[in-house]
Amino acid sequence: MASRRRMLLKVIILGDSGVGKTSLMNQYVNRKFSNQYKATIGADFLTKEVQFEDRLFTLQIWDTAGQERFQSLGVAFYRGADCCVLVYDVNVMKSFDNLNNWREEFLIQASPSDPENFPFVVLGNKIDVDSGNSRVVSEKKARAWCASKGNIPYFETSAKEGFNVDAAFQCIAKNALKNEPEEEL
């Protein structure tokens, strides 16, 4: 209960397992990167404060597990999300193809009031791998898909290098500000 109005944003991170969701979070929140892969169990939660246009935002980040066996939480996890971040690995075509499923799954489970305009952000991660030589999803292709889904903002990131991660999350805050609801009893 702050006297000055701060905004709390619930941000859900979705994407196939191994695309680097947890690494992105760790880079963003803690400025750390580890090459070791540790599967997320269920979900992890963390908090990050960001400033945008003189307003203070608290991002409550729900880092979910990509494995299907952890998807049972559905509604409960997605309820009341302010933003959904879809992550894929630019080196794995399947993880890009699945973006559509993740998006639709989210819209079904969260059932936001205005699904057409619900703020998504798409991140193409691991652009550093093999200096980009193993890349299979082109930026053009990704941007085309984002454009077709109502101009979803798109960022190419490297959790390892810390590239573009901050910019992506600034965008999340910006989107949320646009959609700020005003409620009265």
């Binding site: 939660f45 908090t47 404060e49």
Partner: peptide, 15 residues
């Protein structure tokens, strides 16, 4: 706000 992560954990348990 700093406890947002903790709060999310509580909701996850209940849900």
């Amino acid at each position: 706000h700093k406890l947002a992560g903790f709060s999310a954990t509580l909701q996850a348990i209940i849900s």
